[in-house]
């Protein structure tokens, strides 16, 4: 018996095309999966935490038609649209549903003075400084960032709130502007065509002389 000679079997000719196909598909696959999977549209949109009280915006803002600013009354004056204090709920709920089990955390808060620990849904990174008053008073409606809150039983995030998404609007705000008096009318403009909507936005950009800043320091300071 002579020395063992290794001879590649004939099927090994297939390895080269196989390796080429793999090398061509794997990197784009990984790049696409990372870009798609780690996009804020995947990671952030759809965040719908269970709050301590099952508060329904669909009932309060939608059915009853209570203005956003009845509860989030700081939105026109400060950077933050505050979650209302327990007292605001109790304006009505001392009399309406006073024995409700669902509202128990609310009544406990009213008695003890401890806050109801609400979970923040729309949470920007700590290095981004967003100012609600600056936007709302210039005719950017709640709905542009928060969606149709007045139809949501449980609030969830509908926009990515990413930097690209912010800049898209700062570069071309016309489709997102309206009469500042109508910012809390979330259903406004729903039936408009795109052309009508942009015409309306262009009008209000001119009236209010809006030129959204795109400097880094506008949001990062």
């Amino acid at each position: 018996m002579g020395r063992y000679h290794f001879v590649f079997p004939r099927w090994s000719n297939l390895l080269l095309p196989a390796i080429i196909v793999f090398a061509l598909t794997a990197p784009p696959y990984v790049v696409f999966m990372v870009a798609w999977g780690f996009s804020p549209k995947t990671t952030d949109v759809g965040y719908m935490p269970t709050q301590p009280v099952p508060f329904s915006h669909a009932v309060h803002a939608g059915e009853l038609g209570i203005d956003c600013r009845y509860c989030h009354n700081t939105v026109e004056y400060t950077a933050m649209a505050a979650i209302p204090p327990t007292q605001t709920c109790m304006n009505c709920h001392l009399q309406v549903h006073p024995d409700s089990v669902k509202l128990k955390p609310l009544f406990e808060s009213y008695e003890t003075g401890m806050p109801v620990e609400w979970i923040k849904v729309h949470d920007l990174p700590d290095y981004a400084y967003f100012n609600h008053a600056a936007h709302v008073n210039r005719g950017v409606s709640c709905v542009e960032c928060h969606g149709r809150i007045d139809t949501m039983e449980v609030v969830h995030q509908v926009e990515p709130l990413s930097m690209k998404w912010c800049l898209d609007c700062h570069r071309e705000p016309q489709p997102h502007l309206r009469d500042p008096d109508l910012v809390t009318q979330l259903e406004w403009g729903w039936a408009m065509t795109d052309a009508e909507r942009i015409a309306e936005g262009t009008k209000w950009a001119e009236i209010n002389q809006l030129q959204p800043s795109q400097d880094c320091s506008t949001c990062h300071r």
Partner: peptide, 9 residues
């Protein structure tokens, strides 16, 4: 993840 709301951060 894109089509269903979720509870977790």
């Amino acid at each position: 993840a894109r089509s269903t709301p979720r509870d977790s951060r």
